[in-house]
Design a protein around this nucleic acid. Structure first.
Ligand SMILES: [Zn+2]
Ligand SMILES: [Zn+2]
Ligand SMILES: [Zn+2]
Ligand SMILES: [Zn+2]
Lengths: 148, 148
DNA sequence: ATAAACCTTGGAGTTAGGTCTAAGGTCAAG
DNA sequence: CTTGACCTTAGACCTAACTCCAAGGTTTAT
C-alpha cells in the first residue's frame, strides 16, 4: 500500500490533485491507516494511471469518469459504448483545431502585412485591420518583405 | 449616443458583457445621462468593434487591452510592438494546435483499433490501451475493419 | 397613474482543474 | 523528547470571460 506522498511521487502528480480526484469521485484510496492516512493499493495505482492516460489523450475528468465506469463494469458494456466516447472526443477536438486554424490564418495574414519595423504604428496595417475589419490588407511603409 | 441596450443590440453582445468590459478597463462609456445611464459615442462603438475583432482572431481581453493601449497612442508606438503581439499569439495558437493534433492522433489510433460493435467491452482495445498504455494496439474481436 | 421596458449597483455564481492555507495529528530518528 | 517529515480536514483562492440576481430608479406609452 502506498501513502499519498508515495503514490504522488510515483505517478508524478500533486498530492492535492489526488485528494481532488477523490473528492470528485474518480479515485478513492481503498483503505485508511489507523491514523486516517489514505492507503492506495496496486489496483488504485492502476486506476490512477488509467486516469492519467485518459487525460493524456484529451479527456476531461467527467469523461474519464465515464470511461472508468465502463472499465469497472466491462462485461455489461459494449465496444460501441467506448468507441462512441472516443469518437465524440475526436469530433470535439477537431472542431477546436478548426477554430484555432482559423485564428492562425487570420493572425498570419495580419503578421505578413505588417512590416514589424520601428516606424510609428500610425499606419500599421494590423491596427487598421482591427479598426475597420477590412480583409484587403495592403502592405505598409513601402518596405519590402523579407527583412525580418 | 447609444444607451447600453442599443449598443448591445447593434453589436450583438450581452449588456452584462459591456458592463464587464467597463469594469475590466477595456471600454468606458464616454458619458452618462442625468439619470446615470451609460451613453456610448460612435467612437466608443468603434472601440467595441476593435475589441470584438481582436477577440475574433483569438486574443484574450488582457491582450486586447494591450492592443488598445497601442491603438490609443499609436504615434509613440512602433509596428514592431504590434507585430510582436500578433506573433506571440501565433506561437501560442500553434502550440495549442500541436497539442490538439497529438490528442487527435492518439484518439484516431484508439478509434481505429476498436471494432465499435455490440460485443462485450471485456476485450476492448481502447480500454486495454488506457489500462496498460501500450502503443502496440491490436485489432480486437477478429472483426474486419471497414464496416463502420 | 400605472405598467412595460429600460436602466443602475454590488455582488454572487459558473466551469475546469486544480493549488494553497491554516490548524492540527502522527511517525521515525537521534 | 524534540525535530522534521509526513498526514488530516475544511474551505478559500486561482484563471477567464462572462452571466445572473436582487432591489431599486427612469422612461415611455396608454
Ligand atoms: Zn510598419
Ligand atoms: Zn504594422
Ligand atoms: Zn470490439
Ligand atoms: Zn473496442
Amino acid at each position: 500500500m502506498y501513502r499519498i506522498g508515495e503514490l504522488s511521487a510515483l505517478c508524478n502528480i500533486n498530492k492535492d490533485t489526488l485528494r481532488f480526484y477523490e473528492k470528485s469521485g474518480l479515485l478513492q484510496a481503498s483503505a485508511r491507516s489507523s491514523a486516517g492516512y489514505r492507503l492506495y493499493s496496486e489496483q488504485d495505482k492502476d486506476i490512477l494511471c488509467f486516469i492519467l492516460r485518459a487525460k493524456g489523450v484529451g479527456f476531461t475528468l467527467a469523461e474519464t469518469q465515464e470511461l472508468l465506469s465502463i472499465e469497472i463494469d466491462k462485461e455489461s458494456k459494449a465496444c460501441s459504448d467506448v468507441k462512441q466516447l472516443v469518437d465524440d472526443k475526436l469530433t470535439e477536438i477537431e472542431a477546436k483545431i478548426a477554430e484555432l486554424k482559423c485564428f492562425q490564418k487570420s493572425l498570419k495574414t495580419l503578421s505578413n502585412a505588417c512590416c514589424g519595423g520601428h516606424e510609428s504604428a500610425v499606419h500599421c496595417t494590423i491596427l487598421e485591420a482591427l479598426e475597420q475589419g477590412s480583409n484587403d490588407v495592403r502592405y505598409e511603409h513601402s518596405v519590402r518583405q523579407g527583412d525580418q
